[in-house]
């Protein structure tokens, strides 16, 4: 069972950040720098804290002057690989803003947002080969060169999305299929699945260990009513 508590409050979150996320200080525009630094810390490490990032977007929502497109893009890249609907939760805080007023510093977000959204949809629809194809294509060059290259472990984070989907749905999977999902060639694939504790069998078929999601069982659900749950109605009948 995956718990949401790590999402609500990651163990890596410091007290300082916790105070900002949970307290009324989250509305103070002067604190945006602390939260932005924390985001860049997440970019450099493989940590992730959705609620802290949403707090940045909240400050941007209330104080449009603070808006920093690079920060927004990095937040979205982090949200892309979350098992929760973080990506849409972030977008939902991006209010419509007036067209860019400063031509010297063009806002990269309007150009990248459709691409990020498409990538997100592909992951959500488990269209993993299509995701990699688009991500490796020229269309994504600027995203790769300016942003994801800085985001430590981005591709591995995408692979973890794949692993989550495959773990639940498969008992055994062909290595060819899996290699297109993970975008790994056969050699790397063997090493990768070994780390996961999956075994490569004959003819390159990979077996996954059992987990609650990949062993469906038929059950008959029976209602379970205890007498004390019916006390009200029985008492009523007696009184009447």
């Amino acid at each position: 069972m995956v718990s949401a508590s790590e999402w609500v409050q990651p163990s890596t979150r410091t007290d300082l950040i916790e105070n900002l996320v949970s307290g009324v200080d989250r509305y103070n525009p002067n604190n945006v720098g602390i939260l932005e630094d924390y985001l860049y810390h997440q970019i450099r490490t493989e940590e992730y804290d959705c609620l802290a990032n949403l707090a940045i977007l909240k400050l941007y929502q209330f104080n449009p002057d603070l808006y920093n497109p690079d920060v927004v893009i990095n937040i979205l890249i982090k949200a892309l690989t979350s098992p929760f609907p973080d990506f849409n939760l972030c977008i939902s805080l991006l209010d419509e803003r007036a067209a860019n007023v400063n031509p010297d510093e063009p806002d990269p977000l309007p150009a990248l947002l459709p691409l990020l959204t498409t990538l997100h949809n592909l992951l959500q629809q488990c269209r993993f080969p299509a995701f990699w194809q688009l991500y490796r294509s020229d269309k994504s060059e600027s995203l790769r060169d300016n942003y994801t290259v800085e985001c430590v472990g981005f591709e591995d984070a995408v692979r973890r999305v794949v692993v989550r989907a495959v773990t639940g749905a498969f008992k055994r999977i062909g290595s060819e299929r899996l290699s297109t999902y993970l975008n790994l060639d056969v050699e790397d694939l063997g090493e990768y699945v070994q780390k996961l504790g999956w075994t490569v069998g004959d003819a390159g078929v990979i077996s996954l260990p059992s987990n609650p999601d990949n062993q469906p069982v038929s059950t008959v659900v029976q209602e379970n009513i205890q007498l004390h749950q019916l006390t009200k109605i029985i008492t009523h009948a007696q009184v009447a």
Binding site: A169, K171, S218, T219
Partner: peptide, 28 residues
């Protein structure tokens, strides 16, 4: 906001390479 992942459907399945095995839960 807290919570745990739970199955929410009465219909479950697993893919075993090229075979799909299906199990259905029914309500008595």
């Amino acid at each position: 906001l807290d919570g745990q992942t739970i199955p929410t459907s009465d219909l479950d399945f697993v893919i075993d390479e090229n075979m799909v095995h299906i199990a259905e839960s029914t309500v008595g």
